[in-house]
């Protein structure tokens, strides 16, 4: 198995406050015990609501946010154990496409310079070779060459997203972390960017970590999907299976929250559940408070991820289906 990226027990915590650079007091867990495998040429969708830790997960994989524990295996090298210097040779392998492409570009640099920046920093190309490479990157992402002399504010949202993509591709990465690449675009543009991403993947054998709250986009592009809730993995598995037959009540609730054309909308009213608050001393399931099918056991004991077969994992004591009951 030529695993491209393998994440094991990854956790990220922030100190509640820092003094003189040292963490003080309580820590705030942003990600808890995340694990997944992303094969070369594959796409893993990361879904969850805002604040669920999706972006942090993307940044932690690239070591832009330091993980507090766990392993990030890239070609069986543990990136989590390397320091800044040790990471340097691996940086070009994986790139991030930022959530807001406008924020991710220096407003005083032309688009051409923006795209050329990683080339200047990572590969020692001559000025001439760089210009050729930038033009080539622009044509790969369908960005008109005349736009290279423009400034970020002069471009439309779609053009900016293409430029951001071109920049991320400049170092010939094998993994792209796409942080909500379509969230700022209108629907027709979203489809074009998604198709562009698919084409690039097929052409270059790229792996994508596709972070989104948009289940439709994820189901279009991702073979596998991981559902996050408050930094915990709820469910992961093949996207089709996960969407057709969600095993975790939270996945089901996410799917039910999708806007559906009126006539198809059945009575999927997610009634607010009122029940005892989780026992402060015990380790309740993080989704306990919102779960529609929670049992007394969920109040005292956090579920461990168990397999439903077919690479389908669910962190629930009472999955909606499957043979995982009571391991």
């Amino acid at each position: 198995m030529s695993a491209g990226l393998r994440i094991e027990h990854l956790s990220v915590e922030y100190a509640a406050r820092r003094r003189l650079g040292r963490p003080q007091g309580d820590t705030h867990k942003v990600l808890t015990d995340i694990g997944f495998t992303l094969l070369a040429g594959e796409t893993l969708g990361i879904v969850g609501e805002s604040g669920s830790g999706k972006t942090t997960l993307g940044h932690a994989v690239l070591r832009m946010t330091p993980p507090s524990s766990g392993r990030i295996l890239w070609d069986s090298v543990d990136l989590a154990a390397l320091d800044d210097r040790g990471l340097r040779p691996y940086r070009p392998h994986m790139q991030l496409v930022f959530q807001d492409p406008y924020e991710a570009m220096n407003p005083r640099m032309s688009i051409g310079c923006v795209i050329a920046e990683p080339l200047i920093l990572a590969c020692g190309l001559t000025r001439r070779a760089r210009r050729i490479r930038v033009a080539q990157l622009a044509s790969q992402v369908g960005l008109d060459e005349s736009l290279l002399t423009r400034y970020p504010r002069e471009l439309s949202g779609g053009q900016r997203q293409r430029a951001a993509l071109a920049r991320a591709l400049a170092t010939k990465p094998r993994l792209l972390v796409l942080d909500e690449p379509t969230s700022g675009l209108d629907v027709s543009l979203q489809a074009r960017i998604l198709n562009l991403l698919r084409d690039l993947q097929a052409e270059k054998g790229l792996s994508y970590l596709f972070i989104s709250h948009d289940l439709a986009a994820v189901s279009y592009i991702a073979q596998r999907t991981l559902v996050l809730f408050r930094g915990h993995m709820m469910e992961q598995g093949p996207t089709d299976a996960l969407i057709r037959r969600p095993a975790h009540p939270y996945t089901a609730a996410l799917l039910a929250a999708l806007p559906v054309p009126a006539e198809r909308k059945a009575a999927n009213s997610a009634a607010e559940v009122t029940r005892l608050p989780p026992d402060p001393g015990s380790r309740a399931c993080v989704y306990y408070a919102g779960c529609a099918t929670a049992q007394p056991r969920c109040r005292t004991e956090a579920p461990i991820a168990t397999t439903l077969g077919d690479d389908h994992l669910v962190a629930c004591h009472y999955p909606l289906h499957g043979a995982a009951r009571d391991f």
Binding site: M64, E117, P118
Partner: peptide
């Protein structure tokens, strides 16, 4: 704290490069 500086860091830029290219220019 800007994303474009974080992006440059991700591309392997050092503090001096960031100061010269992104901050002084800005």
């Amino acid at each position: 704290e800007r994303d474009y500086v974080r992006a440059a860091r991700q591309f392997g830029a050092g503090r001096l490069y960031v100061a010269r290219v992104h901050i002084l220019r800005a």
